[in-house]
Design a protein around this nucleic acid. Structure first.
Lengths: 155, 155
DNA sequence: CGAGTGAGTTGCTTGAAGCAACCTAATGTG
DNA sequence: CACATTAGGTTGCTTCAAGCAACTCACTCG
């Protein structure tokens, strides 16, 4: 992306994309949402270049989507957590996930499933529990990877 | 974006972003959804470079998100329409719109509002009508620009 | 007959992203 | 003790996407 803004666009979709529309950004948010909190962990999970990850994390902290907290001193080490604003991206992620699920061929079913923590029901692409009908938020749901049966080789 | 794919990611969010995560792409979809159909119209509305718009439209047609239809011959002129797959992006757009609305300062309220065609009620960021409670799709809703009162100057 | 329109394409420039190597401070290993 | 490893980055170089302006082609309009 040459620049990350969309000048002249007075629309919240454009405003949202100015922040989370950059390459890797939404995947970083997804990863932090599913429990990846540390630099190297994110880097390995995503395969993103380290300088790019560094830039994205800084921007996400500036934009109050992530929070950087030390988890030890000497040497100082940090973890990243979602703020309320970051957690609030959950409906958009779930919607994109749903679209991707519907329009990608998955012979064995989609690789990531989302469930309502409280009742265990599956969550629709609108972020609504299909069992109990409740409209959910990030904290109410839990994502489960299905396609992770990596043949015990390498790594 | 150096490349538009995210190798090694088996997740529908990544799959979705491989297609609609490129710069300008979701804004093009948004514009077509709100009635912009022609090349120059999209170019003027977005301010995107013409070669980039051209590349995006080709990719969106290849990916079966847009359809290119002639509306006259000699000279041949074309319009772009959303396919079902394209219309199906509506929930994701509405979710991003909602997030942008909630986290952008708008002294005069958000610049784009979405209403349920049938009952006229406002639509939530989950794509649900807040008046009648119905879960909506692209065809059920209508977007209204509010902030378009450009002071009658230039252009 | 020149200007304008619509839908692009071409060529050049800029800068974001990919990649590898490096840094610093501490811990673990033979 | 030397050496390797871990964590969280930074630096420098290269490549390719995006911005920009100019051009094309086929037609219409005044």
């Amino acid at each position: 992306m040459l620049r990350h803004d969309y000048p002249g666009q007075s629309c919240s979709i454009a405003k949202a994309l100015e922040v989370v529309g950059e390459r890797w950004t939404l995947l970083i948010v997804r990863d932090v949402m599913t429990g990846h909190r540390r630099f190297d962990e994110l880097q390995r999970s995503l395969g993103v270049a380290r300088n790019v990850l560094s830039a994205r994390l800084q921007r996400l902290v500036e934009e109050d989507i992530l929070e950087r907290r030390p988890y030890q001193e000497s040497p100082e080490r940090y973890e990243y957590f979602l703020t309320e604003k970051g957690l609030d991206l959950w409906p958009a992620l779930v919607a994109l996930l749903g679209w991707g699920d519907r329009h990608t061929e998955y012979p064995e079913g989609p690789p990531l499933l989302v469930f309502h923590k409280e009742c265990g029901g599956p969550v629709s692409d609108r972020g609504v529990c299909e069992r109990c009908g409740e409209t959910l938020n990030a904290r109410d749901a839990r994502a489960v990877r299905v396609g992770d049966e990596v043949p015990a080789a390498g790594r």
